[in-house]
Simulated scan of single mutants.
Amino acid sequence: MKDWDDRIDEVWTAAAGGMVDDEVISRIDEIAAERGPGDARAEFERAGARDSAGRPDEAVPLYRRALELGLDEEHRPQAVIQLASSLRNLGEYEEALRVIAEEQDGHPDSPYRDALAGMHALALASAGQPERGLSVALLALVPHMPRYHRSMTAYAHAIAGDDT
């Protein structure tokens, strides 16, 4: 018999490229129920299914619950990014930015830092701060550039109106 993670992965693989609908949510919920309501990973998967189905209002409380229960280092940053995305989609930009800032401050060396920066840039743009969003995106790209670190960093700060 396949383990829990494999069965969750199968559902997501089958849904890839298609619309996540009530059937996908039901399949995820069925597998998640095996772990019970006090399992962070199960709540994370349930949230992701609703999020992918375009139901951010249903996903947000599940992401919050998963984070409260305590996710591992692989799934916590994913939950934060997805929670911030859902909050952004609901127009709750300040809350999205708060969640992002907490993750960035608490885990500056996370392997998900660039993905978090991307969500940060989107949330800033949606919140009416596109220049700051562009700055965040540029600063996330700088370490990946073979040259121009100093100039791109300076441009990014100048665009955002930073004095630093």
Rank of each mutant, 00 (worst) to 15 (best):
E68M: 06
G70S: 11
G70Y: 00
G70W: 00
G70A: 12
G70L: 03
D72T: 11
D72I: 08
E73G: 10
E73W: 00
E73Y: 07
E73T: 11
E73R: 12
E74Q: 13
E74D: 13
H75Q: 12
Q82G: 01
Q82N: 15
L83A: 09
L83P: 09
A84Q: 03
S85E: 14
S85D: 12
S86K: 10
L87S: 07
L87N: 09
L87M: 05
L90W: 03
G91P: 07
G91V: 04
G91C: 04
G91E: 03
Y93S: 04
Y93C: 00
Y93D: 12
Y93V: 06
E95Q: 15
A96N: 02
A96Y: 08
V99E: 13
I100P: 04
I100K: 02
A101F: 01
A101R: 14
E102W: 05
E102K: 13
E103A: 13
E103Y: 07
D105K: 15
G106I: 07
P108C: 06
D109K: 14
S110K: 07
S110E: 07
S110A: 08
S110F: 07
P111H: 03
P111E: 09
P111G: 15
Y112K: 07
Y112L: 14
Y112Q: 05
R113H: 08
D114Q: 11
D114M: 09
A115P: 00
L116R: 08
L116N: 02
L116P: 02
L116F: 03
L116D: 08
A117K: 02
A117C: 06
G118S: 13
G118H: 08
G118R: 10
A121K: 05
A121M: 04
A123R: 02
L124I: 02
A125E: 12
S126Q: 10
P130N: 11
P130S: 11
L134H: 04
S135A: 15
S135L: 07
V136D: 04
A137K: 02
A137N: 09
L138I: 15
L139G: 05
V142W: 02
P143C: 08
P143D: 11
P143S: 11
P146F: 00
P146S: 03
H149F: 01
R150S: 13
S151I: 14
S151D: 13
M152Q: 09
M152G: 04
T153W: 02
A154V: 01
A156G: 06
A158D: 12
A158Y: 06
I159H: 07
I159D: 01
A160E: 04
G161E: 10
D163G: 12
D163V: 14
